[in-house]
């Protein structure tokens, strides 16, 4: 187990390293000269040259990369124009937002977390619950309805569902305010009211996929011999289905859930654009449009960290659920 974990962590570090190098190289090829984005008004050649020097843009690429990575782990000095000393984890200074990138991130990251985490709880609960029940009541009206629900959800688009939800609940019935973000610590009710449509839209589309998958998995497990043996031993139905079968059926769902949640935490670009919520995804889109290099780098890295971390979490969960993995 320890060996497996170490191998996994090493490969994760390698992936993150490759992502950082590639995004560093790629975003330097962005169409806009990063410097012009960094001094928007009264730019003269002299000032441009100064900024270029401060940013170290005249250094060779690998020196810049090493400097950037050093900033993340131990912090570095960015020069007076960029707010001076930048403590670890230093992700650089954004001229477009006129603040260190870490400050931007600390503002938008809670927004994305507030969108994704409640939505994920909703979609996992709803999806797995629906799938399990419809597998147990196979062929009934409930099963048919659940199948219809999951087929509809799996074929709908978030921007369309979002638009329809907005149209019905906000603009026509005036039940829900226009989507916005308030801190949960500031006003929990307003926090929920401002994000509830985003949760519903995400939960509807994702739970459809999970309902479909968990139904198929549960049906497969129910036909296994160990389920029949457990029933034959005289165990109660809830115990057999809820503990024995569920545990065996849930492993592939954990894999997909890890990928989905990890991916969503890295920025729900479409959701945030549809509902006009300023989270990580929209910040990244804006940064790409403005050629805001430090912010782009930071958002790509953070998304990658989320996905890689989710993958490791999935592996650990696997070991917890499935004893065969532990033996290996």
């Amino acid at each position: 187990m320890a060996r497996f974990l170490i191998k996994r962590l090493l490969s994760a570090v390698l992936v993150l390293f490759a992502v950082s190098v590639l995004s560093f190289l790629m975003f330097f090829a962005l169409p806009r000269d990063p410097v012009t984005g960094m001094c928007p008004k009264n730019c003269n050649a002299e000032r441009l040259e100064r900024v270029r020097k401060e940013l170290g843009l005249s250094d060779p690429l690998y020196v810049q990369y090493v400097g950037y990575m050093k900033g993340i782990f131990v912090g570095r000095d960015l020069g007076s124009a960029q707010g001076g000393r930048c403590d670890a984890p230093c992700l650089g200074y954004s001229y477009v937002n006129s603040e260190p990138v870490t400050r931007t991130l600390s503002r938008v990251l809670p927004v994305t977390l507030s969108v994704v985490i409640p939505a994920a709880v909703l979609w996992l609960g709803l999806g797995i619950g629906l799938g399990m029940i419809s597998a147990l009541r196979r062929g009934t009206v409930f099963d048919r309805l659940a199948i219809g629900f999951s087929l509809t959800g799996a074929s709908l688009q978030l921007y369309f569902v979002g638009a329809m939800l907005l149209l019905v609940f906000t603009y026509t019935l005036h039940l829900v305010p226009v989507p916005h973000y308030t801190s949960i610590f500031h006003n929990p009710l307003d926090w929920a009211g401002g994000l509830v449509l985003a949760w519903l839209a995400l939960a509807f589309l994702f739970s459809a996929i999970y309902a479909r998958l968990s139904r198929a998995q549960m049906l497969e497990t129910l036909s296994e011999d160990f389920v029949r043996t457990a029933r034959a031993k005289g165990l109660s139905k809830p115990r057999v289905y809820g503990q024995h079968a569920l545990r065996a059926a849930i492993t592939p769902i954990v894999t997909i859930a890890g990928l989905d949640v990890g991916g969503a935490l890295g920025g729900t670009v479409i959701t945030e654009t549809t509902f006009g919520i300023q989270g990580l995804g929209r910040t990244a889109v804006y940064a790409v449009r403005e050629g805001d290099l430090p912010t782009i780098m930071a958002t790509v890295l953070i998304s990658a960290v989320f996905i890689v971390a989710a993958n490791i979490a999935v592996d650990l969960l696997y070991a917890a659920i499935d004893p065969r993995v532990r033996l290996r």
Binding site: V15, L16, V19, L22, S23, M26, F27, A29, L30, P31, L259, G263, G266, G267, V269, I270, G281, A284, V285, V288, I296, T299, V300, S303, A304, I307, V308, N311
Partner: peptide
């Protein structure tokens, strides 16, 4: 390829 955020990278690549 899974770890790269597809939409953000696509946003950067296409105009470039």
């Amino acid at each position: 390829a899974l770890a790269m955020p597809f939409l953000i990278v696509a946003l950067a690549i296409v105009p470039t």
